[in-house]
Amino acid sequence: MERISISLEEGLVDQFEHYLRQRGYRNRSEAIRDLIRDRLETERVTQKRSTHCVGTLTYVFNHEERELARRLTHVQHHHHDVAVSTLHVHLDHDNCMETVVLNGPTDQVEAFANSIISEPGVRHGKLNLIPVDVETQRHQHGSGAHQHTHSRPQT
């Protein structure tokens, strides 16, 4: 592992120390590595529009809002090729949170996320993407050989 040093203004250091405490980091290096990885992943996804990705879309909505739950289900069915699984959580009597696991070409995943987030009544929508390389392999699982794809996180 290579060691680097950086200089920061006092105010930025204070904010960073607060960030470390809030998130439970044990040292600055771990936090800086995570921040750098997050930024690089974001850049990689935004620069390579045709790449494949995995990710999650999390959003909050009021299930009592007129036809919203039906519209959200319709959007998920319309994008069944990228929406792998959905976790639905009841937050209170009116509000629900859903997290959708996504897998597919980045442009299609983003289109799905945008169509959900832009639905009237959806609040706090957040898309998190991780770029992956897709490999098709033929190998043995159990009693027979078969072919399927693997999504490998890019390094």
Rank of each mutant, 00 (worst) to 15 (best):
T46P: 00
H74N: 11
A145P: 04
H63W: 03
G11Y: 00
A31T: 00
Q76S: 09
L35I: 15
L91M: 14
T51S: 14
I32R: 08
E41Y: 11
E65L: 11
R3V: 12
N62H: 09
L127W: 01
K48E: 14
P120K: 15
L102S: 02
V101Q: 06
R49P: 09
S143W: 06
Q147M: 14
R37E: 09
T46I: 12
E2H: 11
T56Q: 02
V60L: 11
V75P: 04
H139M: 13
E41R: 10
Q137F: 03
L68D: 01
G104H: 02
Y59S: 07
V60R: 02
N128S: 15
V84N: 01
G144S: 14
H77M: 08
H88G: 11
E65D: 13
D14W: 07
V89W: 05
S29R: 05
Q154C: 14
R28V: 04
G24Q: 08
H90R: 04
E64Q: 12
E67H: 11
P105H: 15
T56K: 07
H74R: 14
L127P: 00
G121S: 07
L40A: 13
T149K: 13
R28E: 06
T99R: 08
L91H: 03
G142T: 03
Q140A: 15
G24W: 05
R49T: 13
I4T: 13
Y25K: 03
T51Q: 09
L127E: 07
F61T: 04
A111Y: 01
S7K: 09
I116S: 06
E43P: 01
S118D: 11
Q76Y: 07
S85V: 00
E67C: 10
E17N: 14
P131N: 01
S7W: 00
S115D: 12
I36N: 10
R39P: 04
G55N: 06
E17G: 09
H150I: 08
T58W: 02
H78R: 13
Q137I: 13
C96S: 04
L12Q: 08
V132Q: 03
Q108L: 13
E9C: 10
R138L: 10
R26S: 10
V122W: 00
T136C: 07
S85W: 02
I130Q: 11
S115E: 14
H141L: 15
Y59C: 07
P131V: 08
Q108M: 12
R28L: 04
T99G: 02
A69W: 02
G142P: 04
K48T: 15
I6P: 09
S29C: 08
K48F: 09
T149C: 07
I6G: 11
R49N: 12
G142Y: 00
S115Y: 06
E98M: 03
D92W: 00
